[in-house]
């Protein structure tokens, strides 16, 4: 009985285990897993919940593996955005609905943010990606790692004055990179 069933499944083109998609997910995990898990952990404040979020994110990545593997946009930005969406959706699902329907001025509806030109993670990551390595590194140190110019100078091995001017020019470069996308330039 089992044999017959198997034969039928085999001849009717049963979906093979999607080795391709799995390989993609494996590579994505190796490359981005730690960033993703750290981010999910901060958002959820809970290690187990964070792992759930990462898993769900990767499953979605697998479903969108074609779009993800075309190399045209930041995979990491996509993953971080999806993880954040999942956390938000779960938080929203947990909340009591009636009290949340009323619009709160502190949480304006998305259309407004959208048209207001708030850019998303992928766009900014793409923008940072277009910068020179020196510009990107200085912004990572002084902004994302919150270092002072003196601290960044030590980490980067350049004079503090260089960190200051580089920060200025890096921001300008980022502004023009983002300007193409979100119309920042006035």
């Amino acid at each position: 009985m089992g044999g017959a069933a198997r034969a039928e499944r085999g001849s009717s083109g049963r979906q093979l285990p999607p080795a391709q998609g799995e390989e993609l997910i494996r590579q994505i995990y190796v490359e981005h897993g730690r960033a993703l898990l750290a981010y999910a952990t901060r958002l959820t404040g809970d290690a187990a919940a964070a792992e759930d979020v990462v898993q769900e994110t990767l499953v979605r990545a697998w479903k969108h593996s074609e779009a993800l593997s075309d190399g045209s946009r930041s995979v990491r930005g996509w993953l971080l955005t999806v993880a954040r969406n999942i956390v938000t959706d779960r938080a929203r699902a947990r909340r009591a609905r009636p009290t949340e329907v009323a619009e709160n001025p502190a949480t304006p509806p998305m259309e407004r943010d959208h048209s207001d030109g708030v850019v998303d993670t992928m766009v900014v990551l793409d923008g940072l990606e277009t910068l020179s390595a020196e510009h990107r590194r200085v912004l990572i140190e002084v902004y994302y790692r919150g270092r002072t110019t003196a601290e960044a100078a030590e980490v980067l091995g350049v004079p503090a004055g260089t960190v200051k001017s580089r920060t200025y020019y890096a921001l300008r470069a980022l502004r023009s990179a983002l300007g193409d996308v979100v119309g920042v330039t006035r």
Partner: peptide, 26 residues
């Protein structure tokens, strides 16, 4: 204004060490 845009990217985006392909999570 430009710095404000950077807030759309979380700092974790710059963690670069590879994860272990044998992690139970994977």
């Amino acid at each position: 204004d430009t710095a404000a845009f950077m807030a759309a990217v979380p700092p974790e985006a710059f963690i670069d060490e590879p994860a272990d392909p044998n992690d139970p999570l994977l």
